[in-house]
Design a protein around this nucleic acid. Structure first.
Lengths: 217, 217
DNA sequence: ACCCTGCACTCCTCAGACAAGTAGAGGAGT
DNA sequence: ACTCCTCTACTTGTCTGAGGAGTGCAGGGT
């Protein structure tokens, strides 16, 4: 019966997190003092302190000397891998649309000549069918880079590559119905960015990704 | 001269993280013992333990009783707080546009009657000027909820609230030029969602946030 | 009405002690 | 020579008690 194998501090952190999520303490409000919590959880003060530190590292709690320990965030930053594994694949593609359509729009108005060259090179790379998924991923990243927006790029890098394997699997089971149309949508996107037409760029990006969403539907 | 205001444990954690990122200890390898680290950093053992706990909470380190403390991840998920503190405020608003415009578009086609009621209630709440920023934030969250997409909601929750204080400060220095127009844009957004008009909903969302971006320009 | 002083309360840090767990060295047995 | 066991040194885990330092509030003085 290995019930209590985990360290006490880890279990204390878990208990505290549960109470925070249950709404026992509102966002920004103060938790009871260390000694009080230690008595409630039936552990020593240092154990409580370590539990608080762990949650502070995760951004849930914040302790200020002399004042107390406060709730810093109700919604714990859930691991992206966990989120993406749980939710519907369609939801992921929709989020991609949000990021990439806006990136395409911005890229159309901000792209430099160098961006354009990189874009055409990535498009040509897509012709070769052997590494289609990776080349496609690289192409889309170039678009986001051309948007010159660090937040959007961070968004793309942290969450799009994580569904790569899922996409590979899905495309193996059910291939794209019309590869030529898909490639044409990419070419349209590059042309719209070259022509500095934000609306057309966003629309082209949306067309491609909507078609991709159909595969998962 | 407030040089050493931050708690010792926090500074110790920072020092350890720096050494991990510098590659002093490879992925999966063991760190020196707590007592050794305490001597190196010139702090007490409990302080070292709290620093390790903090990094464990962030997923960087992992400690196993009897064995030691090990490096669990080299690629630290770069903190959103760090990213958002570093980048231009305009880039943040642009990312908000990406998320919220798409959410508005989806909300227009998926909203339930209950969503619509919540939307109108949140809009009415915005009338009262005392908690304008919070009421506005709540309103926008309701829009994202109505989109019925978990990924977009997670995106909103993890990164939009973190710029709340920055927005409060910015709006104090330079208020919105035309509050009535701002409120009208919100009303338009609700009406577009009520009418199930995705294009109009996305446009209304974009109008409001673009105006917000001007404040930071 | 304003300031400021004192105080109670909080977290922060340390030191020491002992418990619990791990991993490797080394011996006993086959 | 190989396997298994035990013993031991070392590690993290937990608790306690003691101060130090910072915060916020009440109460008194101006």
């Amino acid at each position: 019966m290995a019930v209590a194998r985990r360290p006490l501090a880890a279990r204390a952190a878990e208990a505290l997190l549960a109470r925070v999520r249950a709404g026992e303490w509102a966002l920004g409000s103060k938790l009871p003092g260390e000694t009080t919590l230690a008595a409630q959880l039936d552990v020593g003060r240092s154990t409580v302190r370590e539990a608080v530190r762990e949650l502070a590292g995760r951004g849930v709690l914040e302790s200020r000397q002399g004042a107390g320990v406060f709730v810093a965030a109700l919604d714990v930053v859930e691991d992206w891998d966990a989120v993406l594994g749980r939710v519907d694949a369609v939801a992921v593609v929709e989020a991609r649309i949000a990021v990439e359509a806006e990136a395409a729009r911005l890229a159309a108005s901000r792209r430099t000549p160098a961006d354009l060259r990189a874009l055409r090179r990535a498009l040509a790379e897509r012709e070769r069918p052997e590494h289609l998924v990776d080349a496609d991923m690289a192409f889309h990243r170039v678009v986001v880079v051309a948007a010159h927006n660090e937040v959007l790029l961070e968004l793309f890098d942290t969450f799009v590559p994580r569904v790569r394997s899922a996409m590979v699997a899905a495309l193996r089971v059910r291939p794209l119905p019309d590869p030529d149309a898909d490639h044409a949508a990419h070419a349209d996107l590059v042309e719209a960015i070259a022509a500095r037409d934000p609306g057309a760029a966003a629309a082209a990006s949306r067309v491609h990704l909507t078609a991709l969403a159909e595969v998962f539907g």
